Amino acid sequence: MIQLDYLGYEPWPSPNNLLKDLERSAHVTQTIINKLDPGQEKVHLSPGLNPPHWEFGHLIWFHEFWVHRHGQQSNPSLFPDADELLNSSVISHDDRWQVQLPSLDILQNYFSEVMERTFTILRSGSLSPEQAYFIQLALYHEDMHNEAFAYMWQSLAYTWPLKQNLGSIEEQQNGFEPRYIKIPQSQLQLGSAPNTGFIFDNEKWQHAVLVPSFSISSHAVTNGEYLEFLKSLSDAGVSFIEHQPAYWKKEGDAWFERFFDQWLELDLKATVRHISAHNAEQYCLWKGVRLPTENELSLLMASPHADWLPSNLWEWTSSTFMPFKGFSADPYQDYSAPWFDGKHRVLKGWSSFTPNYLRRPQFRNFYLPSRSDFFCGFRTCLI
């Protein structure tokens, strides 16, 4: 049964602020899709990809379905057969390659019509709690798909069309050397509390957790540190190919990393990225350390940045993605519940492609531990 918790996710943002955020997100989406060269929308079937035009259509459908159709298929869509073609809950991943989509022009018109209807609501200057919740849900869903476009483009070696993200995404060094931070036994308020604004259902509800003392690295693992791991395998006569980051290559004695369509010389001080949890654990086994738990990483990320350095990557934990006690699904029931399968891992943090308002210590990301295509890294704890 769906709870009505979502109607109490106050304080609500102002309509004007929501309008600015939605206009920004829509601009990002349109820029990504419009800058595709002819034929680039046709991609090979892969677990980490969606057909780009299908993904574009899906995020429009999602927005219209929740904001303007009130989550009811009986309310007609502006786009015929939208529920059959674009609903990710009923169209399996592999079947998305078989969907007969309309032309890009038709999808773009659908996008413009749906967005303009929402812009009109926001320009009115008054929102009901239900409108405020569902517009935020649609906005954040679009933001997540824009980030998914980024790691899809990385996987496909496409040019990233947004100039603000063309540079290096490694962290600034902040002038202090990597070290382990000793954190004494602490009581952590894990999850989100009522009346703290929009949250996702897997954050419900905030509860006290006693976290034993631990020592955690101030910096995420760097390219140089990870390269030492690969070299140790090579020196031991062990093939390191399965542990090598997907977008690295070696030419002579030099290592390079691909960032979208550009091969750059490997920056040894930059944070290593595109590492699966499985490979992160192999590194930890070699180094004699371990991955942090969700509780430990949450505690670190809730502390001042003067003590630790964000990596601008989603960071793996050793914790399985599971519901907190008393979990109840919000209206979009497929956001969390299907993934409480004991297979997915919690990640904390954010990437350079995550909007600032989603960079919250309470936010719980989750992926299969075999995945490394998205922008992810890891830091370690002493055993």
Rank of each mutant, 00 (worst) to 15 (best):
P331F: 00
K20A: 08
W248S: 09
K163N: 14
L104E: 14
P212F: 15
E242G: 03
L233W: 02
W97S: 04
M322T: 11
D341A: 00
G71I: 01
S239V: 04
D373P: 10
G237R: 01
A148T: 14
Y226S: 06
E203R: 00
D334G: 06
A157D: 15
V272Y: 04
C284S: 05
I199E: 01
V238P: 02
E251P: 04
V90D: 09
R117Y: 10
S103H: 12
S217Q: 12
H305F: 00
W339Y: 13
M144V: 10
G39H: 06
G175E: 02
W339C: 00
L139P: 01
Q72M: 08
A138P: 05
H70S: 07
V99C: 05
N365A: 12
S328D: 10
N87F: 03
G288Q: 06
F56N: 08
S126H: 13
I32G: 00
L188R: 01
F214N: 10
P212M: 05
T31R: 02
I121Y: 00
N174G: 09
S372H: 12
H44E: 10
L285K: 07
Q131N: 07
S215I: 01
D5S: 01
I199C: 01
N365F: 08
K20Q: 12
A280S: 01
F214I: 11
E55Y: 01
E170C: 15
A306C: 14
G377E: 02
R96T: 09
E242Q: 08
H145T: 10
S328I: 14
K20P: 05
W54M: 08
A82M: 06
F229R: 04
Y332K: 01
W66C: 04
H274F: 05
E203P: 01
P184V: 03
E55H: 13
E84H: 14
L190N: 02
R179S: 13
A270G: 15
R123D: 05
F256I: 06
N50Y: 07
A26F: 03
G167Y: 05
G8E: 13
Q206K: 12
